[in-house]
């Protein structure tokens, strides 16, 4: 699976919430697009990931 442009290993039947927690992303303060579509936060637990998925995981940084 590709996350933010890098290949990452996906656990068996991992849902999006598990994947983010296992990889120490701060779930409360991020947003995710999966294959170009924004994933509503309330659905993270029900989204099962596949090897072909492309994720963008974003958060706030300083900016003007």
């Amino acid at each position: 699976m590709k996350v933010n442009g890098k290949e990452m290993t996906l656990g068996n039947n991992q849902n999006l919430l598990q994947f983010l927690e296992v990889n120490q992303f701060d779930v409360a303060t991020l947003a995710v697009a999966r294959n170009g579509e924004i994933v509503p936060k309330v659905t993270y637990e029900t989204v099962t990931l596949g090897e072909e998925d492309i994720l963008e995981v974003v958060r706030f940084v300083g900016g003007g």
Partner: peptide, 15 residues
């Protein structure tokens, strides 16, 4: 104001 950018794994500091 803030900007949105790619997050990194592993407990990085959050603005």
């Amino acid at each position: 104001t803030l900007a949105l950018r790619r997050a990194n794994q592993g407990g990085e500091e959050n603005i």
